[in-house]
């Protein structure tokens, strides 16, 4: 199901029932090739100037979703609309103008920057893409470097001459060089040191304010996206299981999985850390090739009942654009864990 946009703002990016499947060979002759749905029936939308956080454990499909949104991967089903235009299966040529407007920042700046190119060359590519004339190039590059808090004098350095945090700033500058409207950030600070993380998150925040950018902020860390996002979507095994305005999600999580994720984040506080109930859920996500019946989170869920084993829960709005896909969300009393217990509405 899709979310209604707040009145007055047309969505910049809209995904409807997006799916990304890929084949997995099992190595046996008799078994047919099976498919993994890395992204399974995902709908979301993003308004101009908005930041959507996407959170989940590794293997939940968040990076695959990010790659679909920038069309580095072609969704196998569903619709992807950018400013009203269907780009789900657009070819490379018709994508070109869109490519400039949607940029991506990757987790590992070391791997995503071409190590043989100087910083200036890396940034010039995007500038050329948006038609900056040659005589303005140098000035624009210096401006970009200043914008992301790097020394413009370092324009001729190679990526390896910078620290990790600086390299991520180059990655951000590279994304900005094309003057995008939307930047998809795939774990942009996960590889950075604690004291550097906050700097980069703040930089992203300032850039968004200055340039009216929209972000999709993919992370495995709920604490990092909390401060950066307006809305947050929680993914589990290819599905969005909860989506809500940020404050609401942290104050009143509705999905048991979200609650577990929140409980698992270590708190930098002695008393709170010791007083907290420890591990809430156990185990690891199911094998994506052998999804459990009904709700995918069922095998790890403390609230699971019979209905969870048979009916796959759909995303339902619990008011205030807070959607959750759960038979027993946390705003209902905990179900009695007997067989055949009724499922609350």
């Amino acid at each position: 199901m899709s979310v209604d946009a707040p009145p007055g703002t047309a969505p910049l990016l809209e995904a409807r029932n997006l799916e990304l499947r890929y084949p997995v060979r099992t190595g046996s002759i008799r078994q047919p090739t099976r498919h993994v749905r890395a992204v399974d029936d995902v709908s979301l939308e993003l308004g101009p100037g908005e930041t959507l956080g996407i959170v989940g454990e590794s293997g939940c499909g968040k990076s695959s979703l990010a790659r679909c949104l920038v069309r580095l991967a072609t969704p196998t089903a569903g619709t992807l609309l950018y400013r009203g235009t269907d780009i789900t299966r657009a070819n490379q040529r018709s994508l070109r103008p869109v490519r400039r407007e949607i940029q991506m920042v990757f987790q590992d700046p070391e791997a995503s920057l071409n190590g043989r190119k100087r910083v200036g060359q890396i940034l010039a590519t995007g500038l050329r893409l948006r038609g900056v004339p040659g005589n303005r190039m140098k000035a624009e590059i210096r401006e970009l470097l200043r914008l992301v808090g790097l020394n413009p004098e370092h324009v001729d350095h190679f990526p390896h001459e910078f620290s990790g945090g600086q390299r991520q700033r180059i990655g951000i500058a590279r994304a900005l060089s094309a003057d995008p409207r939307l930047v998809v950030l795939d774990e942009p600070v996960s590889a950075l040191d604690v004291s550097i993380r906050a700097q980069v998150v703040n930089l992203l925040y300032d850039l968004r304010e200055e340039r009216g950018l929209s972000y999709v902020f993919v992370a495995h860390d709920l604490a990092v996206v909390r401060h950066a996002s307006d809305r947050i979507a929680v993914m589990y095994l290819g599905r969005i299981v909860e989506q809500s305005p940020a404050d609401d999600l942290y104050d009143h999580p509705l999905h048991p999985y979200t609650a577990a994720l929140l409980a698992a984040v270590p708190v930098p506080d002695r008393v709170a850390a010791r007083g907290r109930s420890k591990t809430v859920i156990r185990g690891e996500p199911a094998n994506a090739l052998e999804l459990p019946s009904g709700c995918r989170f069922r095998p790890r869920c403390p609230r699971a009942t019979d209905v969870c084993a048979t009916v796959d829960p759909q995303l339902v709005d619990h008011g205030g654009r807070h959607l959750v896909a759960c038979h027993h969300p946390l705003d209902t009393p905990a179900p009695a864990r007997e067989a055949g217990s009724p499922s609350p509405a």
Partner: peptide, 19 residues
């Protein structure tokens, strides 16, 4: 500088400048 789950949501996090 550690992003926290408790307390108010702030737009800019306190940081340590430099590297």
């Amino acid at each position: 500088s550690v992003p926290r789950l408790d307390g108010d949501r702030v737009e800019r996090l306190p940081t340590i400048g430099g590297s």
